[in-house]
Simulated assay, not measured.
Amino acid sequence: MAQSGLFGPFVSLLFVLSCWTRISAGATLSLEEKLQQLETTLQATVNQLQEKVVQLEEKVAQVQATNVQLEVQIQQNVPNRIFIFRTSSSVGKAMNLTTGKFTVPRSGTYFFSFTALASFPPSVPEVFCLAYLYWNGVKTGSGGVEEANTAYLQSSPFSVHSTLKLKSGDEIWIQINEMSDETILYNDAGDLLTQFTGWMLDEEIVASL
């Protein structure tokens, strides 16, 4: 639809030129009248193209103004619950710190990354922690860590990464589904060792024109 709208002025111009050619063959108009008619048509076509350019410029400016990014730090890490975050640099207020969910503001391709540092109790035969990335309630990515016979102050990093093509209104969140007893995720505000980040890689501009 966007392409047909853009080329509409050219179609109109070709139609008028065709009519002008046929009229010329009948010699019903003077040369001056024909040139005046052609000038009027060309000006109308230029005006339409200028309007299209303005519309596209406004659309690009709107996309740039609503660039989507998020970076939040974990506040709570209760097993089998969605993460609740304490601070956010989310552009456009798309990240709800209370629910822990990111609501997609604009359709497009997004990249998400969850990185964490798990701390384990000492002298335990087996410890583990597993996180899932959810897309509208469906698991779409996972990452975790598992250790055995842990030592004092032992910790291990893990992460979840995913690139998704999303629609406006989709919901994304991180959730811990499996965690061994006494295992924790570092959540000190100054260390930034456990955080959820993401940004829009590409927006579906054509679909919205």
Rank of each mutant, 00 (worst) to 15 (best):
G143H: 06
L31R: 11
L13E: 01
N136A: 08
L192S: 12
Q64H: 08
S30W: 03
L201T: 10
E71P: 01
A61T: 02
L164M: 15
E71M: 08
L201Q: 14
N47E: 15
L185H: 07
S142W: 09
L17S: 05
E146H: 07
E178H: 10
L117N: 14
V206F: 07
P105C: 04
T140I: 13
V127W: 02
W135V: 13
T45I: 08
S208G: 03
L166I: 05
K139I: 09
A118W: 06
Y132C: 04
V160G: 00
L164C: 03
S18T: 15
M200A: 12
Q175L: 12
E51Q: 13
L97R: 01
R86A: 08
E33Q: 13
I174G: 03
V127P: 01
I205V: 15
L164Q: 01
T21M: 10
D170I: 09
F112Q: 05
D202M: 09
G108F: 05
I205S: 10
L31T: 14
V160D: 02
V78T: 15
Q76A: 13
S107G: 11
G141V: 09
D191V: 04
Q55D: 11
V124L: 02
I184H: 08
A25V: 09
T45S: 12
E126T: 09
Q75S: 06
V54M: 10
I74D: 00
T103K: 13
N77W: 11
A118I: 05
E32D: 07
Q76Y: 13
S123I: 00
E171D: 11
E147K: 14
L49K: 01
C129K: 01
A65R: 09
N80T: 15
N96Y: 03
S180A: 15
P125I: 01
T98P: 00
I172L: 10
F7I: 10
G100C: 09
Y132R: 12
P125V: 06
V72I: 07
G169V: 08
V72F: 09
A148F: 11
T87A: 02
Y152T: 15
